[in-house]
């Protein structure tokens, strides 16, 4: 047990250092390079940088964006880990229960009815539509899979496929009747982007991340027990239905907010928990905090890459995470048959 705790402490320390490093790299790199020295001067509260340009670029442009990227990444990775535990399937992903499709539909709807440019105290209505769309989709999937106040996770996966298809069909219908201009905006939104980061968005992301992360220490043992099977977990004294509902709500809020603020970002929720499991095993006491740190790091790195690859222009960050994630996913499918078998 001591060696295991050591590994846990070491891993979390290592990931924290990596996160801090990727944070500094994200702040100092971009279309306009800022020296690490200037970056630190802007960051540390008791110093100020002499360069007004550095203060502006680092403090006002890159800092909110980097924090948003880290929060979104942490959220997606933790929600992916929860979903995989809940569905007892290492290849599960929150998008399976309709979150992303619902968000897409909500966002498309807002764009098509012409309110795409509208904002409500700094939050675009598109984000609001995406958030509501994702919650509606998950709520619908959950209701479909619940009978006699018992939720079947197997039915949830199938209902998720159905709701994803339905939302996809309606989205396509909307696109079919949209003008070229609207079509472009819909598809740009779907690619995912972090360039809209501002203080309000960062605050919302921070609040939601805290809401998702803070209760998790109480769920680690339940999630471990759930991996054995629902009836086994019940015989271990877990209140299975309450646990499932609470975790589904957390995932819906976490992923719904991430999608609303940054668009659909692929594979972070799938790939990050996998890497952590390969390193320290499936126990959630280590998996959840480690996934949060690693998700934040990966997302920061992907966003930095998206800003650097074709600088001064930017790639949508969702493309970068997919380009990293898909090969890894294929590798898991092909070469680790023990993970995906039903």
């Amino acid at each position: 047990m001591t060696t295991q705790s050591l590994t846990r402490a070491r891993l979390l320390t290592l990931l924290s250092v990596l996160l801090a490093a990727s944070f500094l790299v994200a702040l100092s790199h971009g279309a306009v390079p800022v020296s690490m020295h200037d970056t630190l001067l802007v960051l540390l509260p008791w110093t100020t940088s002499e360069s007004a340009q550095a203060s502006m670029i680092v403090g006002e442009l890159r800092l909110p964006r980097a924090i948003l990227a880290a929060l979104v990444g942490a959220n997606l990775a933790v929600c992916g880990a929860i979903a995989q535990g809940l569905f007892r399937n290492p290849l599960a992903d929150p998008s399976l229960i309709g979150v992303s499709a619902g968000a897409s539909l909500g966002a498309s709807l807002v764009i098509v009815v012409g309110a795409g440019a509208g904002t409500l105290s700094g939050i675009t209505l598109v984000s609001g539509g995406a958030f509501i769309g994702s919650l509606c989709a998950v709520g619908f999937v959950h209701a479909l899979a619940t009978r006699d106040s018992v939720t079947s996770v197997a039915t949830m996966l199938l209902a998720g496929i159905a709701v994803t298809a339905l939302a996809g069909a309606i989205s396509t219908l909307l696109e079919y009747y949209s003008s070229d201009e609207l079509l472009r905006r819909i598809s740009l939104w779907r690619m995912g982007a972090l360039d809209g980061a501002n203080e309000l968005r960062v605050s919302i992301a921070l609040l939601v991340t805290l809401i998702v992360l803070l209760p998790l220490p109480w769920f680690t043992r339940s999630l471990d027990a759930l991996l054995l099977g629902e009836s086994e977990a019940r015989y271990l004294g877990i209140n299975v239905q309450a646990t499932k509902t609470a975790l589904i709500v957390l995932v819906a809020i976490g992923v719904g907010t991430s999608v609303a603020l940054a668009g659909t970002i692929a594979f972070v929720g799938l790939v990050v928990p996998h890497i952590i499991r390969l390193l320290v095993g499936p126990g959630h006491r280590t998996l959840l905090p480690a996934a949060a740190l690693a998700g934040a790091t990966l997302m920061l790195a992907a966003d930095t890459a998206s800003r650097l690859l074709i600088a001064p222009a930017e790639l949508p960050v969702g493309i970068v995470t997919a380009l990293i994630g898909v090969p890894f996913f294929v590798y898991l499918l092909r070469y680790r048959s023990d993970l995906g078998s039903f």
């Binding site: 007892r88 399937n89 290492p90 471990d224 991996l227 054995l228 099977g229 009836s231 086994e232 499991r277 095993g281 499936p282 126990g283 023990d338 993970l339 078998s341």
Partner: peptide, 14 residues
């Protein structure tokens, strides 16, 4: 129970 389907690589001690 008769059957248990644990697909995650916990150690036996865990």
């Amino acid at each position: 129970t008769q059957r248990s389907t644990l697909r995650f690589a916990f150690t036996v001690r865990e």
